[in-house]
């Protein structure tokens, strides 16, 4: 269960760390661009997990399905982030700021 000498836990913990950092960014930052970066990190954490588990299965067979999932997900993530950036650009154009706390008209 230790494919290349690096224990599995290392990858898993890294993934969790990435995910946690992403969440921290999502929850606390003000700058909208940083949210996009945080989102990337969240996705990367999940991807890393998949890749790790794809290699971790008995017989050292790398599961092509998981890998293709990751690849597809990266593509999709690109699309998602593009949409997100488009939002950010529109918001910046309309409001002239990247601070998400200024976008608080919708309440109650």
């Amino acid at each position: 269960m230790i494919p290349y000498g690096v224990p599995l836990e290392f990858f898993l913990i890294t993934a969790v760390f990435l995910y946690a950092v992403g969440f921290y960014i999502m929850a606390t930052k003000r700058n909208m661009i940083k949210f996009i970066i945080g989102l990337e990190l969240l996705l990367d954490g999940a991807h890393l997990n998949f890749i790790t588990f794809a290699t971790a299965w008995p017989g050292f067979v790398i599961d092509p399905l998981a890998q293709s999932l990751v690849i597809i997900s990266i593509c999709i993530g690109g699309g998602v982030i593009a949409v997100g950036l488009a939002f950010v650009i529109r918001a910046y154009n309309l409001r002239g700021t990247l601070d998400i706390r200024k976008l608080n008209e919708l309440r109650h």
Partner: peptide, 17 residues
């Protein structure tokens, strides 16, 4: 109760948390 809906994104995330 409606004050919960602050319109601030971080607050949404905190509620989620």
């Amino acid at each position: 109760f409606r004050k919960l809906q602050t319109g601030v994104h971080s607050w949404n995330m905190i509620l989620l948390l």
